[in-house]
């Protein structure tokens, strides 16, 4: 299906911001867009952004669905550590990479189901329910690795993190394929709509005959699986499972990606593609900071200022002002209010 006019309008703010941040990269590093083919792989600044953005992007896919149900999953960073540790443990015990990947996904899936049951059955608030695993998960991962960085030399597993498919780094292929499949899947079926209905009003959704509990568990399961995949990629990338540091604070980047993607933390309408663009925006900001050569003391300040600017530009009120300015300026009818404004009204009701 070709991208029709309406989705493009939805994604316009993210695309404009991404373009702006990429131009910032170009300003600090003139060769940013030059892509070379060397050593059997594509090599260049833009490829790095796609590649390094992979874990955040994959997490953002699951996180978008969770946030669509008015939930949040704080445990994804810790689940990454668990999954990476399991994969490394399985290959160092002499099994193949397929088994390792399956084992890691199983571990991630169990974590997801745990979160889902706490939220859907025990009705614990998502932020608290997933906090449990966020805190405990890293300890579990350390138990698996026995406190060391568990290194491995399994070629198959390493390929998941630093191999290439037709010159493209494998993580890039994975997140693009997964993102496209999920975005297509939730929109070509009623699934997306059902998830949104839970986010807008869970009770009404249940009364309308939606299996809200089952769907909630599934959503957290998907988030756990995405986290496991991201964890395997991160471990494979450095050929070792680092339980202390793998996925540390990644949950915040994933949530930020969803928010930059223009999705409301209050649930309801969501767009996976927009979240993926959000993940790319975050990674582009990171890339600009690294390429600029500024002293590291400025890293976090620069990042905070850029992110703040991005969020302010996207805020519903600013969106509304722009709309009013355009309308009063005699601009040919802007159609309807920008999505942010419309959405604010929707949730206020």
């Amino acid at each position: 299906m070709a991208l029709s006019h309406a989705p493009l309008r939805r994604l316009a703010p993210q695309l404009v911001i991404l373009a702006a941040v990429l131009l910032l990269n170009l300003a600090v590093f003139p060769d940013f867009f030059r892509v070379e083919f060397q050593n059997g792989r594509l090599f260049g600044g833009i490829i790095d952004v796609l590649n390094r953005g992979a874990p955040t992007a994959i997490l953002a896919i699951g996180m978008t669905l969770v946030i669509g149900t008015r939930g949040i999953d704080l445990s994804v960073g810790a689940v990454m550590a668990i999954a990476g540790a399991c994969a490394a443990k399985i290959v160092t015990d002499g099994h193949g990479w397929g088994t390792a990947l399956a084992g890691a996904l199983l571990a991630g899936g169990l974590c997801g189901i745990w979160n889902g049951v706490l939220v859907a059955w025990l009705r614990i608030q998502p932020i608290v329910a997933t906090l449990v695993l966020m805190v405990a998960g890293r300890g579990i991962a350390q138990l698996v690795t026995e406190g060391t960085i568990l290194t491995f030399l399994n070629e198959g597993l390493i390929r998941l993190g630093s191999g290439t498919i037709l010159g493209l780094p494998v993580p890039v292929a994975i997140w693009i394929a997964l993102g496209a499949a999920m975005a297509w899947g939730v929109r070509r079926s009623a699934l997306g709509l059902l998830i949104e209905s839970i986010g807008i009003n869970a009770a009404a959704a249940r009364l309308a005959g939606i299996n809200a509990r089952g769907l909630l568990v599934c959503v957290y399961l998907v988030s756990g699986l995405c986290a496991a995949l991201a964890g395997v990629i991160v471990a494979a990338d450095i050929k070792g499972a680092d339980a202390n540091n793998a996925g540390l604070w990644m949950e915040l980047d994933a949530i930020l990606a969803v928010v930059i993607g223009g999705n409301s933390l209050l649930g309801g309408r969501f767009s996976i593609i927009a979240s993926l663009l959000g993940a790319l925006i975050i990674q582009s900001v990171n890339s600009a900071i690294l390429l600029s050569g500024m002293p590291p003391e400025f890293n976090l300040v620069i990042k905070a200022v850029l992110i703040l600017a991005i969020l302010v530009i996207q805020s519903p009120r600013i969106g509304h002002w722009i709309y009013i300015l355009r309308a009063s300026g005699g601009d040919p009818a802007p159609g309807r209010a920008p999505r942010g404004g419309a959405h604010a009204k929707e949730t206020a009701r």
């Binding site: 060769d31 991160v234 680092d242 540091n245 793998a246 050569g293």
Partner: peptide, 14 residues
């Protein structure tokens, strides 16, 4: 390790 790799990549590019 992970950040060491990422930052070295940017050094090599820049």
């Amino acid at each position: 390790r992970a950040q060491g790799k990422v930052v070295m990549e940017s050094f090599l590019k820049a």
